[in-house]
């Protein structure tokens, strides 16, 4: 093998004029294919960009202008934050926390049912699986804020609306995630427990739950992380919590108060992320 390889290289040594042109044209041909493909993608992106600039009237100047304006706004109008309103903000902040948590519990409970029904290996019937998947797909495709907008007009202003909105959009995400985790569990163990003559509940408890636990916990906690962000902005459309206060203070041009509200949201998000990370560590 070594001998062969060396022979080839001996032939190829320096006097390559015979093979050169065809090799180079091969290089050029392949390079052209890549350039064409890259050019096509660049062209599509450019066209989309031009079309969007034309449609929205955006210009690059507003990028610099906008950056400048937002910096001026943040540093002159919002800074320093008015910390005297923190007392008023604790109530809304807690509401935001409660909304996220209750919303998570609602979506966990409903998603457990929908997830089991949607998982191929556990569903009582495949039509039920299809329907269950369609419901979660629909709920998932609609952002929580959209649910909040619709619900505010149907149920009224306040945290209950926000909680339901978070719950609904959560079902979309958790229902799918649970179903996927359930589908990935080991079928042999299921069969084993089933073979001992266990009933459905025993199968779930003995074979499914141990394998499902880790995925269940991490997805649910992830959703809690997401919920706190969503809950913080739902108030902008009237669904209670910190966002509602933020919207109010901006409408009244109280930007220094708004800055405090934003800092509060920031702190709340970090706090919840820290806690969910700790809980995840403990449980898994």
């Amino acid at each position: 093998m070594k001998q062969e390889a060396l022979n080839i290289s001996n032939q190829g040594e320096k006097g390559l004029s015979a093979t050169k042109p065809s090799k180079y044209s091969e290089y050029k041909r392949r390079r052209k294919i890549m350039l064409k493909s890259q050019g096509f993608i660049t062209a599509i992106i450019l066209l989309l960009a031009i079309w969007s600039i034309w449609g929205t009237g955006f210009n690059l100047l507003s990028l610099f202008f906008g950056t400048y304006e937002i910096l001026v706004f943040i540093f002159t109008d919002m800074f320093p934050p008015d910390l005297t309103v923190i007392g008023q903000l604790i109530g809304p902040a807690l509401d935001t926390l409660y909304m996220s948590y209750v919303g998570m519990v609602i979506s966990v409970v409903v998603s457990l049912v929908l997830g089991v029904l949607a998982a191929d290996n556990l569903t009582p019937h495949w039509t039920i699986a299809r329907v269950s998947r369609a419901v979660t797909a629909f709920l998932r495709s609609v952002p929580a804020v959209v649910w909040a907008i619709i619900l505010v007009s149907g149920i009224g202003l306040g945290p209950l609306t926000g909680t339901i909105a978070i719950g609904l959009s959560g079902i979309g995400i958790l229902g799918k995630a649970y179903a996927e985790v359930l589908e990935s569990i080991d079928g042999a163990q299921l069969e084993g427990v089933r073979a001992t003559g266990a009933n459905w509940f025993q199968v779930i408890g003995q074979a499914v739950w141990p394998q499902f636990k880790a995925g269940f916990v991490s997805w649910s906690l992830y959703k809690l992380d997401m919920n706190i962000r969503e809950a913080a902005i739902l108030g902008l459309v009237g669904a209670g919590g910190l966002g509602y206060y933020l919207q109010g203070s901006i409408n009244l041009f109280q930007y220094k108060e708004a800055a405090t509200a934003i800092l509060m949201i920031f702190a709340l998000i970090l706090m919840v992320e820290y806690m969910t990370a700790k809980i995840r560590e403990r449980i898994i």
């Binding site: 507003s62 202008f65 906008g66 304006e69 937002i70 001026v72 706004f73 943040i74 109008d77 804020v145 962000r229 969503e230 913080a232 902005i233 902008l236 966002g243 933020l246 919207q247 901006i250 930007y255 934003i262 949201i265 920031f266 998000i269 970090l270």
Partner: peptide, 15 residues
């Protein structure tokens, strides 16, 4: 950490 919608709110005030 600051949600997009809040950024939008701030940019509306600014620009």
């Amino acid at each position: 950490a600051v949600p997009a919608l809040i950024w939008a709110l701030l940019f509306i005030v600014a620009v």
